[in-house]
Write a protein that binds this DNA or RNA. Structure first.
Lengths: 107, 107
DNA sequence: TTATTATATTGCAATATTACGATATAACAA
DNA sequence: TTGTTATATCGTAATATTGCAATATAATAA
């Protein structure tokens, strides 16, 4: 079906999965890494940086914003985007939690 | 088109994206968390744990295995699956690297 | 050998994602 | 007002993912 059996899984599992889905596309990874590189928050520079049309970039930004991975502030005509440190921390914590619990013995 | 413009993006960006794609589905998050919970590595127990048919679970396991997120060892008729600590470490490092570089000042 | 158990693969329908041209909106400048 | 710039949304075609029934494979047991 391709549909989500999301109802069965826990809130947390669905939330984590959708966070990762937001960064599961190379264009969105590239956006994140670009936002990390440039100190000042940028906007339509991303369109010049990526090999994608403006509507496509806008769509990717929307997904990242919906997932709370980036924030966007209006600055006159432009929009200033930047990474959301809270979400980055949350993602780091998820894996450090796994590392801590993970037994070394395995099959 | 839905197709990947993967050729433009860097090797690293494509690799990171496909790692996250592997854990971007609640069923696969649930599998990871179940593998973390049970000390001993399991196999078809996952089918009983999840609300999905055996072929569907098998498909999800295959994706996790292809992404190097889990390992599978044959044990007689069964297959023993477990998390791959190296990949978990890699994912943790990716986000701790971001946290380290991330400026607090933002828009 | 046949039967059983555990897992994988195939084929396909339902659904979701990706990309972009065309168009809309919103803020500012002249 | 009109024009310009920056971004968002709509509509849609191409492609990818998800889920499962049916079937195949592989290891062991009887």
């Amino acid at each position: 079906m391709g549909a989500s059996k999301a109802d069965f899984f826990s809130e947390e599992q669905n939330e984590i999965a959708s966070l990762f889905k937001a960064i599961s596309h190379p264009a969105r990874v590239a956006i994140i890494e670009y936002l990390l590189k440039v100190d000042s928050c940028i906007c339509g520079d991303i369109v010049n940086e990526l090999p994608l049309a403006q509507p496509t970039v806008s769509q990717h930004l929307k997904e990242l914003k919906n997932a709370n991975i980036i924030k966007g502030n209006i600055e006159g005509t432009a929009i200033c985007y930047c990474l959301n440190p809270d979400t980055m921390q949350k993602l780091e914590n998820y894996f450090s939690g796994i590392s801590k619990e993970l037994k070394t013995k395995c099959c």
